[in-house]
């Protein structure tokens, strides 16, 4: 009997989370899949027609936004890596006893609501706001210079908003690197670049990988940054889903776009995992 209970224990552990996912993830997914294959409108109602043509429509209509979202997401993710890695490195290896204080300071702004932060960026970067307005008055910028409604503003907003999701996993990975390994590398004739490139970087790759997932996926499907900081030329696929669903009430199309986005992200992540997550890559990086 005991033995049976022991063998079943893992299933009991999975049960609560599994139920939660089943109710709030699997069921809505099934419903959405069904909705995407319906035809009709809000007034006349929708009927299940299993018409897959909506997927083709979604791709041909919104290919620009799909591609733009992927590019924005990718640039923002790479930018967060470039910003977060050195900072995480410094906190993990050089902040001494104040590590947690620095970490807290870095994360402090992110206790403020995502939307409020993005809106405050809008004030800051407004064409005649505190920054640009003063620079223009001082004659340092041309009068028609603007930041808002550009791709730069959207990518910068994404980079800023997803920064902690990159910083934390990288920090955790670096923090776990045994300092004796650095001494061992030093002892084995590695210079500073060698110690970093052959030991620290490979050992922190799992953190970068986790940060990439946590940043790339939500950044690519984000709509707040493009909505607040962007213009008509920077619309992302998240905005499309939002307007199609909430404004146009074209539920089948919105669902189809969501599914396509999900598929694209899954394929992208799979390719990425294949490239970066395997032992061979780590081994290669140490050569």
């Amino acid at each position: 009997m005991r033995r049976r209970a022991g063998a079943l224990a893992p299933y009991f552990l999975v049960l609560p989370g599994g139920l939660w996912l089943a109710i709030f993830f699997v069921v809505p997914m099934a419903v959405m899949l069904s909705v995407s294959l319906q035809t009709g409108n809000v007034v006349d109602g929708f009927t299940q027609t299993f018409d897959v043509g909506v997927y083709a429509d979604a791709i041909t209509t919104y290919d620009t936004q799909f591609i733009r979202s992927l590019i924005f997401g990718l640039i923002a993710t790479v930018a967060t890596i470039l910003l977060a890695y050195p900072m995480a490195y410094w906190i993990a290896f050089h902040a001494g006893r104040n590590k947690s204080n620095y970490l807290f300071l870095v994360l402090l702004p992110f206790f403020v609501s995502f939307v409020i932060r993005t809106v405050s960026w809008k004030f800051l970067l407004a064409d005649d706001g505190i920054v640009l307005g003063n620079l223009k008055d001082a004659g340092l910028l041309p009068a028609d210079f603007h930041v808002l409604a550009t791709s730069f503003a959207v990518v910068a907003g994404l980079t800023y908003n997803f920064f902690p999701f990159m910083l934390l996993p990288i920090y955790v990975a670096l923090e776990r690197v045994d300092p004796r390994l650095l001494e061992a590398a030093d002892d084995l004739y590695a210079n500073r670049r060698g110690v970093f490139g052959r030991v620290v970087l490979p050992l922190s790759m799992p953190g970068v990988f986790a940060g990439f997932l946590l940043t790339f996926v939500p950044a690519t499907s984000d709509f707040v940054n493009a909505y607040v900081l962007g213009g008509t030329n920077t619309t992302m696929i998240g905005n499309i889903i939002q307007t199609t669903y909430l404004t146009n009430a074209d539920y089948p199309l919105a669902s189809a776009v969501s599914f396509i986005l999900m598929a694209v992200l899954l394929v992208g992540i799979f390719v990425y995992a294949r490239l970066l997550g395997t032992r061979d890559v780590l081994e290669l990086s140490a050569r």
Partner: peptide, 9 residues
């Protein structure tokens, strides 16, 4: 090293 400090990767 006493703890060996082998490179885990």
């Amino acid at each position: 090293f006493q703890s060996y400090a082998l490179f885990p990767h």
